[in-house]
């Protein structure tokens, strides 16, 4: 055991790449009104990736139940709406699968209503739909949910504002700085071009990556249409952090 190891010191940590230019929204985006009082106003401080940032919570199969990934089977009856399969892979920027990552999902029901106390949209709740799921990716980074296609719903951001149908995704990668929360949209949705959330992403190539694609191959005959949605988390820098400080 060398001296550094004996003293509990690690001398080289390989950090994660900073997100590619304009793939991420800015904190302040006036088109989305809630950012005005919540976006930081002081300059952010550059954070080197230390052991505290390249590590992160590790989850296991004890953290999820089989019914957590099938949102149509969490109640005695079947939820109303269009049954869908949503599957894909969690990869990093270097195209490596992110294995055993915790994926969390929440969404509105088919009528565009969340089972949440502050959602007062005049649309029915569904007693057979909670709208919450959770799954662990397999060794190849694959995940799969069965759920109901959510409805669009109005919000108060501006006059006649409607959110396009979407699923909220929360991802834990291997390291804390890989953490990501995003939204998955559906192909061909005419509301996307009006949506400040979707349009908050400046990069023209990055924005449509949030739209899933119809997937005939994983569609279940006579049962459910399927959508494919791959998610890319940040990848490792090629060189150790100390020598690549930007």
């Amino acid at each position: 055991m060398n001296k550094a190891r004996e003293e509990g010191i690690i001398t080289s940590i390989t950090g994660y790449r900073r997100p590619y230019f304009a793939t991420q929204p800015a904190y302040l985006y006036p088109g989305y009104r809630s950012t005005l009082k919540r976006a930081p106003t002081q300059p952010l401080v550059f954070l080197p990736h230390t052991l505290s940032e390249v590590t992160g919570p590790v989850f296991g199969y004890d953290d999820v139940k089989p019914t957590d990934s099938d949102l149509t089977r969490q109640h005695d009856g079947e939820p109303l709406g269009e049954r869908i399969v949503v599957s894909g892979r969690i990869l990093d920027e270097n195209a490596r699968p992110v294995a055993h990552a915790l994926v969390e999902l929440w969404q509105a029901n088919a009528a565009g209503r969340y089972r949440h106390a502050v959602d007062d949209h005049d649309a029915p709740l569904d007693p057979n739909f909670t709208g919450v799921g959770r799954v662990l990716t397999d060794g190849e980074g694959r995940y799969r949910f069965v759920t109901i296609k959510p409805g669009a719903y109005p919000w108060r951001n501006h006059y006649n504002a409607w959110r396009p149908a979407h699923l909220h995704f929360s991802l834990f990668g291997l390291g804390l700085v890989q953490r990501l929360v995003t939204q998955m949209y559906f192909p061909g949705d005419p509301l996307l071009e009006y949506d400040p959330m979707y349009n908050s992403v400046p990069d023209d190539k990055a924005r449509p990556r949030m739209i899933s694609s119809f997937d005939w191959e994983t569609t279940i005959p006579d049962i459910a249409l399927a959508y494919r949605y791959d998610i890319v988390l940040r990848g490792r820098d090629a060189t150790p952090m100390e020598t690549s400080r930007s």
Partner: peptide, 23 residues
């Protein structure tokens, strides 16, 4: 191979339903 990182989006006003069973 280099892939573009997926963009972040807000958790929105209903995040409680997504996270409260795993607090």
């Amino acid at each position: 191979m280099s892939l573009l990182t997926t963009s972040s989006q807000t958790v929105g006003p209903y995040v409680k339903i997504g996270f409260e069973s795993f607090t």
